[in-house]
Design a protein around this nucleic acid. Structure first.
Lengths: 191, 191
DNA sequence: GCGAAATCTTAAGGTATCTTAATTTTTCTT
DNA sequence: AAGAAAAATTAAGATACCTTAAGATTTCGC
């Protein structure tokens, strides 16, 4: 198991000594999953948070009417879970599916809680992660409320070119909150 | 200055000893602001986070075209700031204005940083706050993407009845991402 | 308490976005 | 490489939501 990518990510924010690092790596489980496989399904318990070593995943909600809404994509060096349900111990609202083959490091709620208790430094690391995640969502919300679908599409391409290059337009449309047909019309307009 | 409301809020998540509590209260500044007053204006530096002791505030973005989008309301026992700009030291994207007369406890970025360094427990407190804020935003995003304006309106009334009772319909419309005229039509439908 | 200002409502016409469905193109399976 | 499945495109008709504007109601400043 190669945890160096995660260790680098962590060391950007806090400094761990070898025994703390050891404690972390001892509770991580490496998972290799294939394209289209699910690591979480709606309505099931959400017991893990995942750090992406390689590959690409998509978290999406399916409404009662079958509408597909993409909550987030996660690529290399991102953490992903259904945070609302992970935090509040509720059944998942989203499906998380591999868009490409992935290698992940999986951390359970219990292991994370123990880690946070034993190594207060981790509180800082996750506080910073959560700050960033929250502020990113707040920014996305502002942009969704104030911009048209066309503006949101071009902004998405600019902000996440690497993700845009590896997901389908159907999935981008689902992230933007529009239909694939309408995205197609937007692209035809000026491409 | 009465900091008991904040202390209670904090004690729900962590235990502080008297000297830690003292350190906190020593850096808080109590502010009394009147209805319509601003505590943050778009484009200005965002240097504080505010805990609401009483009253009600609204954070909203004004786009270049003059479109008003409400990012959040904050009532008693909520923290409010422009998190994206507070965290990343950027000019504010939102205005924060009192909807009613308010009493706030103001904490500066520098004081918060010092607090986090000196009292690791605060890392936990803010980590939990940020987790909750993030998961709330993620939930709102799912609902905005998958529900109609009508559904979002009734869900808002149900989730935040106390806020709904004290803000204008124009402000609710701005939170929902629709025009006041359309909200009026929704209300006429079945009220 | 009165006049002014802001909000809320209503309605008509317009635009953004959706639905359905057929066709083409690309990707996946074997 | 062929056939099957999924994705992307196109287009026509439908709907959700917007714009403008006018009138009614409520709130605010003095």
């Amino acid at each position: 198991m190669d945890t160096s990518l995660l260790q680098n990510h962590i060391q950007k924010h806090i400094n761990l000594n070898p025994s703390e690092t050891q404690l972390l790596t001892s509770v991580l489980i490496q998972k290799t999953i294939s394209k289209k496989e699910f690591i979480l399904r709606q309505c099931e318990p959400c017991q893990h948070i995942h750090f992406v070593l390689s590959g690409l995943l998509r978290a999406y909600h399916l409404s009662d009417q079958g509408k597909d809404s993409t909550v987030m994509f996660a690529t290399k060096e991102w953490w992903i879970t259904d945070m609302h349900c992970f935090v509040n111990v509720l059944p998942a609202m989203v499906n998380i599916q591999a868009v490409q083959d992935c290698v992940l490091l999986q951390l359970s709620r219990e292991s994370l809680d123990r880690l946070l208790e034993r190594v207060p430094q981790f509180e800082r690391y996750f506080r910073i992660l959560m700050e960033n995640a929250y502020s990113r969502e707040q920014l996305r919300m502002i942009q969704n409320l104030s911009n048209t679908a066309k503006e949101r599409y071009w902004a998405f391409l600019k902000k996440y070119p690497d993700i845009a290059a590896h997901v389908t337009q159907k999935q981008i449309a689902s992230y933007l909150g529009i239909t694939p047909e309408f995205l197609s019309a937007i692209r035809a307009e000026k491409g």
